[in-house]
C-alpha cells in the first residue's frame, strides 16, 4: 500500500466529517468576508452589558488622575510665584533673617511701614 493513501484517506475523512454547526460557522465567516461586512468574532462574543460599568470606571479613574494633576500643578505654581516675588524684592533678605534686629526695629518704630 502506498504510504500516502491511508494518510490522505484518513485526513479527508477527518475534514469531511466536521459537524454541521462548525460548517455553518465556516460558511458564515466566508460570506461575511466576501460581503465585506465582517466584525471581529470577539465583537459578537463581547458582553455589552458589562462594558458600560467598565468604561464608566475607566472614565472616573482618568478624571480623578487628571484633576489631581491639575491641583498639584496649581500648588507648585503658587509656591514658585511667591518664591520669585521674594527673590526679586529689593529689600535685603539677610536683614530679615536676623530676628533680634527686626524685633529691635519694631520696638523703635523704625520698620518700613512705620516710617511712611
Amino acid at each position: 500500500m502506498n504510504k500516502k493513501d491511508p494518510i490522505k484517506v484518513s485526513l479527508d475523512k477527518y475534514s469531511s466529517d466536521l459537524d454541521q454547526e462548525t460548517v455553518a460557522q465556516l460558511d458564515g465567516i466566508r460570506k461575511k468576508v466576501l460581503s465585506n461586512n465582517l466584525k471581529p468574532r470577539w465583537y459578537h462574543n463581547l458582553s455589552w452589558p458589562m462594558l458600560g460599568p467598565v468604561v464608566a470606571a475607566m472614565v472616573l479613574v482618568v478624571v480623578f488622575v487628571t484633576t489631581n494633576q491639575d491641583q498639584a500643578l496649581d500648588t507648585k505654581s503658587d509656591n514658585f510665584l511667591s518664591d520669585l516675588d521674594l527673590l526679586s524684592h529689593e529689600v535685603d533678605t539677610d536683614l530679615l533673617e536676623d530676628m533680634e534686629f527686626i524685633a529691635w526695629l519694631d520696638n523703635e518704630n523704625l520698620l518700613e511701614g512705620d516710617l511712611l
Partner: peptide, 16 residues
C-alpha cells in the same frame, strides 16, 4: 471537539 473523529472506522481512527 466539534469533529466526529472516529466514526470512520478503526484504520482512519488510528491514522488520525
Amino acid at each position: 471537539s466539534p469533529t466526529k473523529y472516529f466514526e470512520s472506522g478503526e484504520i482512519n481512527k488510528n491514522v488520525s
